[in-house]
């Protein structure tokens, strides 16, 4: 069953001059149709300005479509009655961890969502404990977020969403401001939530290494979905990706280069080092 669906979704940003008069519209998302099944790990790729973040904000009912509509668990996001229900079902993690942590102690921040939902005190504590343990941040529950690393802060932010018991988590470039080890932490956490807890994950990113394990990838450019498929299918279309300001993992690029230069028996869209080494061993003997 689809947890998130968009139907002919379009969104215009209103441009204003200094006096606040409307001077025109900029189309940020144009006629997007996509459907995400429960339990999937979805990646949305796109360069800067491709409209991927605008799309994400629609799923959480922060933005409303100019045209078309978005369904979360069968409910329209544009209907005011559903808004809190939708925000609870489809939680959102943002790019900058400093700007989304509200509490000054880790556990208080994680409890913020459940408090807003009106959950009884005892249950809030249970949810906070469960969420922090799932994200491996339980031992930091009494810490000030200021003293945590970027990756840890981002895991606290994810725990804050997990404590609301969402069915789906949208992560809007959660790794863009992190260093490589923080990035790995966050992606590992996202995959674990998907594998173990069965939470649907929609990961928005421009780091290609992060989407290798996704069930399905949508590639956006200029507000439209330009490509979709499994990571393997997407990564075998290097030239198209480059047009969309994107890249492929270094392994995939090496395989592509080798293929262009004569090793034609290599398959397309190689994703990992092992695959490449195996493929070479299988098809080419030692000179």
């Amino acid at each position: 069953m689809a947890i998130v669906e968009t139907h002919n979704l379009s969104f215009d940003y209103i441009r204003r001059d200094d006096e606040g008069n409307v001077t025109g519209f900029t189309r940020a998302v144009n006629d997007v149709n996509l459907s995400v099944e429960k339990g999937q790990f979805i990646a949305i790729l796109g360069g800067n300005g491709s409209g991927k973040s605008t799309l994400a904000k629609h799923i959480n009912a922060i933005l409303y479509p100019t045209e078309g509509y978005v369904l979360v668990d069968g409910k329209r996001t544009s209907e005011a009655d559903h808004i809190w229900d939708i925000r609870q079902k489809a939680g959102m993690v943002f790019q900058n961890p400093d700007n989304q942590i509200i509490g000054s102690i880790v556990e208080e921040d994680v409890g913020f969502g459940p408090e807003n939902m009106g959950i009884p005190t005892k249950e809030i504590w249970e949810r906070v404990e469960e969420a922090l343990k799932t994200l491996g941040m339980w031992e930091y529950r009494k810490h000030s977020p200021m003293r945590l690393s970027g990756g840890q802060k981002q895991r606290v932010a994810i725990a804050g969403v997990v404590a609301m018991h969402p069915q789906c988590i949208i992560m809007d470039e959660p790794t863009a401001m992190l260093d490589p080890s923080g990035r790995k932490d966050v992606i590992r956490a996202a995959r674990a939530l998907n594998d173990v807890e069965g939470v649907t994950i929609i990961l928005i990113t421009h780091y290609m290494e992060e989407v290798i394990y996704a069930d399905k990838v949508f590639v956006m450019g200029k507000g439209e979905v330009r490509m979709s498929g499994t990571p393997r299918e997407i990564f075998s279309r290097i030239d198209e990706l480059e047009e969309l300001r994107l890249d492929v993992p270094q392994v995939t690029r090496l395989a592509h280069e080798l293929k262009l230069r004569g090793m034609t028996m290599l398959p397309d869209g190689i994703l990992t080092e092992e695959e490449l080494v195996d493929a070479i061993c299988r098809s080419y003997s030692i000179m």
């Binding site: 796109g46 360069g47 800067n48 863009a176 401001m177 421009h206 290609m208 480059e242 300001r245 994107l246 890249d247």
Partner: peptide, 8 residues
């Protein structure tokens, strides 16, 4: 290059 897409 922090925060820039691959082409950037």
């Amino acid at each position: 290059t922090a925060g820039l897409d691959p082409e950037g």
